[in-house]
């Protein structure tokens, strides 16, 4: 035993200081993160404060009489409608994007050169600021009586996300070896079987990524919703913005709705950072 301990200290010491360094590193990082996410954390705390505590000056950090009332009230004063409408519009437009986008992406991936003119044209639609077409859309929607309808907003969000979905999926399909399709064709599978039984399962992760991104963008979109809808369709960002019509918005309710709206995104962000890093390194760092 003693002979072992005699030879051990140098081996043992290094890990100890290493451990300390490691702990310190993580303490620094956590502190930095807390500082960085401060505005959001403050909103989170505010969501639990009763109305009387909202306008304290100087403000109290932790809610003194913590309450959940903001969540139920926030749901009642527009949060529920906002979440519902956003869910409807975001999921419908995403579904249409995938249905329209997948075949197009397949054709683009298999029949056209990568990064060619056609894909560039499709994607450049995405670069355009929404303010540019919005007046045209407004006039068009008045003409077709699509103003303030779910259909109208679904069409707009499909238009907004389709270029990206096509692009992402076609990049993904390009990575799938052609031999699968060829094997299926040799077996005499009809085209719909090829799509449904062969390609779709293989590109499921790509479809998931494209679908999630398209959901997020539709969920977060504000300008089109502001201009192209009125009293009938009120998406979440619009519901939130309407709080600012008053001089002193009820920050508690606002915070509660806001937190409820972004909660699911936190989980998604963990999934996304992996696939984002991977796709960025593939794209730029030579395959």
């Amino acid at each position: 035993m003693s002979s072992v301990t005699a030879s051990r200290p140098p081996v043992d010491r290094v890990p100890l200081s290493e451990v300390l360094r490691e702990v310190l590193k993580h303490v620094v990082m956590v502190a930095l993160l807390l500082l960085f996410l401060c505005p959001l954390l403050w909103l989170l705390l505010t969501a639990f404060k009763p109305y009387a505590e909202l306008f304290n000056s100087p403000p109290t950090v932790l809610p003194v009489n913590g309450t959940l009332a903001n969540f139920t009230e926030g749901w009642a004063v527009g949060g529920g409608k906002g979440i519902g409408d956003s869910l409807i519009v975001a999921s419908l437009s995403t579904a249409i994007c995938l249905v329209l986008g997948f075949p197009a992406a397949y054709a683009l991936a298999r029949r056209f050169p990568p990064h060619g003119q056609l894909s560039f044209t499709i994607l450049s639609l995405r670069m355009m600021p929404p303010i540019v077409p919005v007046i045209g859309f407004y006039l068009l929607f008045q003409e077709l009586s699509l103003f303030d309808t779910y259909t109208g907003l679904v069409i707009i969000y499909t238009f907004m996300n389709l270029p990206l979905v096509i692009w992402l999926l076609s990049e993904f399909i390009r990575q799938i070896p052609k031999s699968y399709e060829e094997a299926a064709r040799i077996d005499g599978a009809p085209w719909y079987r090829l799509f449904w039984d062969v390609l779709l399962p293989l590109s499921a992760p790509g479809v998931l990524t494209a679908g999630i991104l398209s959901m997020i963008f539709a969920w977060n979109e504000f300008l089109f919703a502001l201009v192209l809808t009125g009293e009938n369709v009120i998406t979440l960002p619009k519901a939130l913005a309407s709080f600012f019509l008053f001089q002193q918005p009820n920050w508690g309710q606002l915070g509660a709705i806001g937190i409820a709206a972004v909660g699911p995104l936190l989980i998604i962000s963990y999934y996304m950072q992996r696939s984002l890093i991977r796709s960025f390194s593939i794209e730029l760092g030579g395959r």
């Binding site: 993160l33 996410l37 959001l40 403050w42 909103l43 977060n220 504000f222 709080f243 918005p249 962000s269």
Partner: peptide
């Protein structure tokens, strides 16, 4: 965790 702000709706960012 650092990615959170870019996932948020700009409206939520604005009022935070």
């Amino acid at each position: 965790l650092f990615l959170i702000p870019m996932m948020l709706a700009p409206i939520v960012v604005g009022f935070s």
